[in-house]
Design a protein around this nucleic acid. Sequence first.
DNA 1: GTCCTGATCCTCT
DNA 2: GAGGATCAGGACG
Length: 185
Amino acid sequence: MKPDLSNALVAAKTLLGWRLMHDSPLGLTVGYIVETEAYSSDDAASHSFQGITQRTKIMFGPAGHLYVYFTYGMHHCINVVTGPKGNGQAVLIRALQPTLGQELMAARRQRTNQLELMNGPGKLTQAMGINGEHNGEMLLSQGPIRLLSGLTPKHITQTTRIGISHARDEPWRFYITDNTFVSKR
DNA sequence: GTCCTGATCCTCT
DNA sequence: GAGGATCAGGACG
């Protein structure tokens, strides 16, 4: 079973309720995807807007790969590449609900509050042990980081994206309604 | 709860 | 050289 990654907007909604798994040397961590943002090819807020660069070339590759970038001098964020090859779309994973490996997540995060393990894009990469080494990983095969089917959310809330200065009025952020593990309501 | 700030460095112009 | 798809902690109320 594979998610519909034909375009970023569809994929951002589809991926809610899917699980992200990382089978690392230290142990297994898994969480439900509860919050996403879509970044399209003609989107001024997208890293791909300026065209292919060393950093963004993964975004222009085939769908289903992991795009990892480093921001604010200290945080990694992860995206699922979507759309046709050469188009430059992706879905940012903003929050996960922990389901397996909470002890390892807590150790990596130096936090024990379950709600604060992965309720933000920088937090979840730290909790899951994902960094720049994983840029380009294939998520739909038997690699160390994978997408697994999960639940179908009852209700989805659509709203504007967080932390951007361009295209800030576009309602391209999605989260599972009433889920307590999202980054912000 | 809200607001403000410092930390810290990669990427592209 | 500027800016960034962030986070945590402190001040304040």
